[in-house]
Design a binder for these strands. Structure first.
Lengths: 211, 211
DNA sequence: TAGATTGTTAATCGATTAACAATC
DNA sequence: TAGATTGTTAATCGATTAACAATC
């Protein structure tokens, strides 16, 4: 694992994992790179190239064992163990992420939520308790939380990020539409709906021009 | 506009727009590529390169006029006019997207929502009415909706996509964790939280190995 | 053995970075 | 004029695609 691995490759590994779950549910024990790739609408070359960064997982002339490749990819992505996460901002988006089942399937467990709104605080829904912001530090320590998801308005996002990394958070998934300042050692990933939607309007406009 | 323009460039244009809104709020009339780039934590070269795909918008030795560049980027992204969209699936995520203010600021207006759940149907919250799925076709036609956002469970996503493009939808933002089959002329963009989170666990695991 | 499919190298393609001439 | 900053070309870097030898 000396060469630099593209971020796109890592993202695709998640997709491969999901496809493997699907084929496993369909009672398939072995799949070829072509079957996986067709399911995900990518090329089999790309799948094999992506896997080759990490080792040799298939059998020539045969394909990949579903359960084995699942274990291998989980190991690569760090999903062989459980991770604890929290959500800051318990609006609609915060709630959606808190209760999203897809995370737990992959070993990522939302352990707590935080919100400024007193009416939301100290209530527990489906195992997740909403705490006031003042409790961020203590709960993170107590519950051993390493990942935080930020869904607060952009006005308070920078301040929340500061509290989070000062509390020991080492990775942040940020849904607030603003660039956060975090220390180099904190891993930050932005998710931005508006940009994605705007890409659609751009393409729609292009199409109209062609006509 | 003969050369192929990278998707990344289009996504960044949205970020430039947002930065320009920020500087405008701060009463700045003119900004340099360096100021914009610093704000967004990218390089000024990249910003200038991105803009150069579409024309010359700045003044050498001076910088860019904020209001003019805003108008130019809006025009490029098709945001000089209003777009009508709908949300299918009125769970927490559907609600979050329906009421998200960031869209309306950019001229994208959620006009209707749809859900299978009878308890959610025929209620109007903040100008958005939730209709049964059977009404998808008629509402889309009546309200002139071109963009759809899918937030239903993966089990029903493919079927919903079919109903949508058969109803005249031309662009889909898909939050369901499954690859949809759509005709070539329908523009499709996937958003996947799990992949983003998993990228964080991958990086966290890498860090631990280094120690 | 013949057919199938992997893993990897080489070729291509595309995006980013850097440098600088043009010019406000 | 001198300083600043754009727009664009060239160089670099990186990712994807394709081809094929290895081998189950």
């Amino acid at each position: 694992m000396d060469r630099k691995i593209p971020e796109e490759t890592i993202i695709r590994l998640s997709y491969y994992l999901r496809a493997l779950f699907y084929f496993t549910e369909e009672n398939k024990k072995v799949v070829s790179s072509r079957q996986l790739a067709d399911f995900l609408k990518i090329s089999p070359h790309q799948l094999r190239k992506d896997l080759s960064y990490f080792g040799q997982f298939g059998k020539k002339g045969v394909g990949y064992s579903c359960p084995k490749l699942i274990d291998n990819i989980k190991e690569i992505l760090g999903l062989e163990r459980e991770w604890s996460a929290c959500v800051v901002g318990f609006g609609n988006l915060g709630r959606a992420l808190s209760f999203y089942k897809g995370f737990r399937d992959q070993g990522i467990c939302i352990k707590a939520a935080f919100d400024v709104d007193k009416n939301k605080q100290n209530k527990t829904i489906k195992d997740i308790t909403v705490y006031p912001l003042e409790k961020i530090k203590s709960i993170i320590k107590k519950q051993n939380i390493t990942i935080a998801i930020i869904t607060v308005p952009k006005e308070s996002a920078k301040q929340i990020a500061k509290i989070l990394y000062e509390s020991g958070i080492r990775a942040i998934l940020n849904f607030a539409p603003i660039k956060l300042d975090v220390p180099e050692e904190v891993i930050l990933k932005d998710v931005d709906f508006t940009c994605q939607l705007t890409y659609l309007t751009y393409r729609l406009k292009l199409l109209e021009k062609e006509d």
